[in-house]
């Protein structure tokens, strides 16, 4: 081999190397993520399940049925309310607590650990505790209401309150994570910039809105995308606490997919719901990223 050719092959190898490094990860992701996704789309165009043991091509029928189904719109509405409240509430609560703990506070470490506990608590354990708190007859929530002379509420059994209870649990489970993310971001903010703002005459709230908040933008973007995905995936609490009831008041998209796929065994229809959900999450994340890079 000539020296020139050897040099060229070394360069070619150097160009190829990064792709080889990511190949194993891509293969695994392909097996667990991309192949199922493609199969899901394939599935959503077929009828498969109790009524059709072999997949049968039906085109967009599953989607037509889905969009014509009032329950789908109910579930979508529930999911929108759930996401629309859990995302800002968990992020907002996380940020507020991070700001509080960022001060040189006695016992901040302990508080941080305590507040982070719900995140690491197994969902089943958390759901069990929540069931006990929200139990209509002997729950803590109604006991407290009773103390101030208010009548008991069907937290999980009254369709007016059930989604709200689920939202509260969803926030409780995730705010600790965002608190930690914001705390890390706050502690890496350049202190001198905040001090410069003080000397420029900015008082605490002013400093927060004109300096801290804009500097936290990358963190907020990250938090919103993560919170959005987490809340769209909400399933465990629904499954354990309400089974989507009463009368579908707490039926959220993933649970709806589960119901159709694994309870009613309408795999093609469930696939169509999952595809719609995927498109929704993907579009929303894209819009948020667009806002961020503006």
């Amino acid at each position: 081999m000539t020296a020139v050719a050897a040099g060229a092959s070394t360069r070619a190898r150097a160009r190829l190397a990064p792709y080889l490094y990511v190949l194993p990860a891509l293969l695994l992701l392909g097996l667990w993520n991309y192949y199922p996704l493609v199969y899901l789309i394939h599935l959503s165009l077929h009828r498969l399940g109790a009524s059709a043991p072999m997949p049968r091509w039906v085109g967009l029928t599953n989607y037509r049925e889905l969009f014509a189904n009032p329950l789908f719109w109910r579930v979508l509405g529930n999911t929108a309310i759930y996401t629309g409240l859990v995302v800002p509430l968990s992020i907002g609560l996380g940020l507020a607590l991070a700001l509080a703990l960022d001060q040189r506070l006695r016992g901040a470490r302990l508080l941080r650990t305590l507040l982070y506990t719900p995140v690491v608590l197994p969902t089943v354990a958390g759901a069990t505790v929540a069931l006990w708190i929200f139990n209509t007859d002997y729950g803590l929530a109604n006991y407290l209401l009773g103390l101030i002379g208010l009548p008991p509420i069907g937290w999980l059994t009254d369709s007016e309150y059930a989604l709200g209870s689920l939202i509260a649990v969803g926030v409780w489970k995730t705010f600790g994570y965002f608190m930690l993310v914001y705390l890390a971001a706050l502690q890496s903010l350049p202190q001198s910039v905040l001090e410069a703002a003080r000397l420029d005459g900015a008082r605490p709230w002013d400093r927060f809105w004109s300096v801290t908040w804009p500097l936290l933008r990358p963190t907020t973007w990250f938090a919103i995308v993560i919170a959005l995905i987490l809340s769209f995936q909400a399933f465990d609490f629904v499954n354990i606490m309400t089974q989507g009831g009463p009368s579908n008041a707490t039926n959220l998209l993933v649970f709806y997919v589960y119901q159709n796929g694994f309870q009613y065994f309408r795999l093609g229809f469930a696939g169509a719901i999952a595809v719609v959900m995927f498109v929704l999450v993907y579009t929303l994340s894209g819009l948020i990223s667009l806002w961020y890079s503006r």
Binding site: P190, S192, V193, A196, A197, R198, L199, S210
Partner: peptide, 30 residues
Amino acid sequence: VPAEARNIAMVFQDYALYPHMTVRNNLAFG
């Protein structure tokens, strides 16, 4: 008297410019 009310200006070692603002807004801030 708190720093924000002392009417003192400071030049920091790392400059501490507001990274998300234009130079004009950096100057206008105070």
